[in-house]
Amino acid sequence: MQERDVGGYLIRVRRTRMWTQGELAQEAGVSPTTVSGIESGKISRPHFGTLRKLARVLEVNPQDFFEQEPAEGVGRSPAALSLRWARSTRDLEFERELDRASLQGLKRLIRILEEERGRLQGLYGEFPPGSEERLRVKGELRHIAARSESVSTSMLFHPERREG
């Protein structure tokens, strides 16, 4: 297992938020050159203070920039249900984890997905009709809506509900 590629990780998280390098830099209070340098690998060992600023606006733990990548399907647990996980997990793995998750974890995940749906709907309205950005946001909305419906279904038939 190798140490996480900081630049590659930053690119993935930034794109998940649908931000440009400039938008991320502005939100985090760092220069666009710094974001570009980290993503391209020109800055191979970014200052932890810079990563902390980026992590804050991206809503990730600063340590995530350094932790090792888990192997496919390894190291994830239902307790780790998150927006990032819901966006990046393949359908079959997503459904398996939902089946193993607690009712409380499912409730938390549905709340997170609904917040993201609202954020994306607001973002959708900011782009001109027919634009590439608007189409991309609409695709993300479909994906988040599908995940949300799947979680809702899992909640309906969760064993804790039947026992209670």
Rank of each mutant, 00 (worst) to 15 (best):
D91T: 15
L92D: 11
E160C: 03
G118Q: 15
E93A: 14
L135W: 12
V6I: 15
G8Q: 10
I112M: 01
R142V: 12
E140K: 14
R15N: 05
P46T: 08
L98M: 12
E72Q: 06
G22P: 00
F65H: 00
S40D: 07
I38V: 12
E72T: 06
T153C: 15
R100A: 10
A79R: 03
A101Y: 00
R100E: 05
P78H: 01
R14C: 01
E149C: 12
Q26C: 07
M1L: 15
E39P: 01
E114S: 05
S102M: 03
T16G: 12
T50I: 15
E23A: 08
R134V: 00
F157P: 02
R119I: 05
T16Y: 08
E67V: 03
R87K: 10
F66M: 01
A55K: 05
P129L: 02
P46W: 08
T20A: 01
L103C: 04
R161I: 13
E3Y: 10
H47K: 13
W85D: 06
Y9L: 07
P78E: 00
S31N: 14
M18D: 00
E149W: 12
L24N: 02
R15W: 04
S88H: 14
G118I: 08
F48K: 04
R136P: 09
E93R: 10
I110Y: 06
T153M: 12
A80E: 14
S152Q: 14
A25I: 04
L58Y: 12
R162C: 06
S31K: 13
L106N: 06
W85M: 12
A145F: 06
R136I: 07
P129R: 09
R108L: 06
M1N: 09
G37Q: 05
R12G: 02
V30T: 10
E67P: 00
T89Y: 02
R90L: 09
R15T: 01
G122N: 13
G8W: 08
G105S: 09
K107E: 14
A55H: 04
F65R: 00
S131G: 00
R84C: 09
E23M: 07
R4L: 04
R119N: 13
P62N: 10
F48G: 01
S82K: 06
R136E: 14
G41R: 14
G105L: 01
L135D: 11
T16P: 03
L123T: 05
V74H: 14
T50S: 08
P129F: 02
L24D: 03
E3V: 04
A101C: 01
E72A: 12
L98C: 12
L54R: 11
G49M: 13
T20P: 04
N61R: 12
E132A: 10
V74G: 11
L109T: 00
R119P: 03
E126P: 02
K53V: 10
G139F: 12
S152F: 15
S82N: 04
P70W: 13
Q121P: 08
Y9I: 07
M155P: 09
L141P: 10
